[in-house]
Each structure stands twice: as structure tokens, then as C-alpha cells.
Amino acid sequence: MGIREELENVTAKLVVKNVSKTFSSSRGKVEALRDVSLRVGEGEFVCLVGPSGCGKSTLLNLVAGLDKPDSGEIKVDDIPVKGPGRDRMVMFQEHALFPWLDVFHNVLFGLKLKPNLTNPERREVAKFYLHLVGLDKFANADIHELSGGMRQRVALARSLAPNPRILLMDETFGALDALTREQLYGEIQQIWQKRKKTILFVTHNIREAVCLGDRVVLFSPHPGRIIETFDIDLPRPRDINDPALTEHSGKITAMLKNQTEGSAEE
């Protein structure tokens, strides 16, 4: 495989069908997901929102292949998910970069595990993605020398480098300060438009979900399930401070409030 094919835009559709997952702990069983179904089209940006404990992160882990569902199935381009795979890369809330490697070698880590590439090609690809996130100059920096926002950018480059079809983001911007976060909202939209990835983005911040997603999927806890899906048809790139977002986020917040009050009365 040559470098041109390697850098091609690839994407995939994702199908989640009747998935359930229960965790058992010493305090009893927690039904994290009950009968959840979801379709994500090629190149679509879908945000999963909901209060903590609603199973949105569980679903992300199942799609990533880090956990197995109790029932139901998950398919990427009609192929069932059996475990972790390079076609689905995950970005966590903590950057999860390796402190024993410099920035460049962190980005290179996943590429080294990818067969059919020569080492110069791998280095070329890593450079391409470092450039994409604007960190060319920091290739040889150590991780602790970077700011929180820069670390998440390296993590993004590392996730994009093996050229996955689907990018899974688990509260990726949650630990950053507001200013850095706003900047990254713009960048992730740009990169998504350039690279045409399918993105599944988990967050508890409704405004953030509305800002980023083509669709926002609202989850409700105990048991975790999807209660509503919202299409967001605002033009891109979107700004988090755009008043037009408020209309959508207000609607979602209202529905979420309804739900939690309803379940509290049960």
C-alpha cells in the first residue's frame, strides 16, 4: 500500500442494533444500556448527550470493541465488531498520550502497528497529521511540555494517523479550559470536513453537542436508552457562541428536564 492510498479519505457507516449491556458489581446490577439502536451514516458527525450514568460512554466503548454487548449487534460497514480495530480510533477525556515517547513517536505509535507500510512512509504520514493539527514545530517535544489543548491535538493526530473510518470521542474536550475548548471546536469541525471521518462524539454538554453534531442523540439513565434524536441543520463551521444554537440546545435541555423529573416521580 502506498502513501497516497494511506492518506485517502475513508469513512464508514455504523449500525447499532438492539444493544443491551448490564454491569454487575458488588452493589448489584446496573443496566447501562437497554435495547439501543442507532444508525450513523458515512461521514456523519453524531453527538451522544445525556446525564452521567446514561450509558453513552458504554455505547462508545462497545463500538470501540473495548467491551462486548450482552445482546444485540454492532456493525461497521456490515462487518460485526469483534474487538478493537484500527478502523475505529478512540480519543479519551484524558489525552492518554505516552509520556515515555515524544510527540512524534506518540503519533507514530499506531502507524508502526499498521502493516504494509515502509518506515519512511510511516514517518511521512505522522508528519502529515502533526501538520494537520498545527504542531509541526513540537514534533520533538515531550508530552509534559505541552498545554492541555496541545495534548488533545496530539491525541487527535495520533487517532487520525492510522486512517480510521470512524473516530470515537469520549468527552474529549471535557478537561480543557473554556477558551481552549472553543478553539478546538473550530478545529475539529475543519478537520472533520477535510478528512470526512464518521464521528461519534460523547459529551454531557448539550451546547457543545449542538455546535458539533449533524445529529444529537439524547440518552436517559436507569436504564440507559435513547429517548430522542435531533437533527441540527445549521451551516458550518459553527461557533459555540452563535445564538442560533440556543434554540436547539434549549429544546434538548427542556426534554432532558422533563425526562429526569418524570423518572424521579416514578
Binding site: A64, L66, P84, M89, A96, G110, L113, K114, P162
Partner: peptide
Amino acid sequence: IYMRAARTMGS
């Protein structure tokens, strides 16, 4: 989280 991240990259 290091192990989880590595697993997703195929390690």
C-alpha cells in the same frame, strides 16, 4: 487508560 489506548491502536 494507557493499555486501552494501545489496544485501540492494535497493540
